[in-house]
Amino acid sequence: MSAAAPTRDLTPRRPAPDAAEATPRRRAIGRPSPWVYVLAAIVVFFTLLPVLVGVIGGFRTNAQLAENPAGWPDPWVFDNYLNVLQGSQFWRYTLNSVAIATMSTVLVVVCGIMAAYPLARYQFRGREGLFTIFVMGLLFPATVAVIPLFIITTRELHLGNTWAGIALPQAAFALPLTVVILRPFLQAIPKELEEAAMLDGTGRIGFFWRILLPLSRPGMVTVGVLAFVGSWNAYLLPLLLLQGDMRTLPLGVADFSSEHASDTAGVFAFTTLSMIPALIFFLTAQKQIVGGLQGAVKG
């Protein structure tokens, strides 16, 4: 990203403070004041509060929750979690979520890297125009197309209530961002490598297959993780297209919480268990998720 010359804000509005006024204010960088830790504790508290209430609430009974919603489990009850884990619903929803997110991710990564390759490394007329099509795709949120998508996938493609019916549109809507992230990534691979491969008699397809793909693994992992998280958390399209046993976890959680509205402890247990896959995935892929988001902003 180009540097905006921050013209105005850098000039002090008041004259610089006297030397006398400013002597001992240098902060020892290694030792921040205790207030910093207080602030950090507050932030952690509010960030984790809902998650912790869910986790702990799952270990209590509805009677305990009604008596004091903020209390500690006394005694600890495991029935709520066991009920969810022993029932078939939770596993069924998890399977659907895994299958749909995997299909969508594979599609996005494969189609995305293929499309990004010529856009990054070929010289041809209309290349920028072609790239603009992908950039334009960023402007169309799934929300705008969701009603026709519902009709098209169910009636014309006969993919209503199937994994593919969700995974295909999700992949399509994830592709623009994927191509926009991957193109600069592929452009950054040194030209010399390509020339060396050409000298050795490898064609451009061979170069793509044998050199570019292995080298662009970090980029593919990043876009793959973003696509997976996006699909895993999606609600609107599954809400329209999936019913019964085909529902994904978010849909399942939402329906469970309205069907069992009086069973607060059960809702907590179900919700907590649904958070776990996402949290594990996040902890293992943290670098890629954060890196990908930062990359998207760098543009």
């Binding site: 958390n233 939402a254 949290l279 996040f282």
Partner: peptide, 13 residues
């Protein structure tokens, strides 16, 4: 962490 959770799941809690 909150960013990674699905909006739906966070919303239910």
């Amino acid at each position: 962490v909150p960013y990674v959770l699905a909006e739906v799941i966070a919303g239910v809690v």
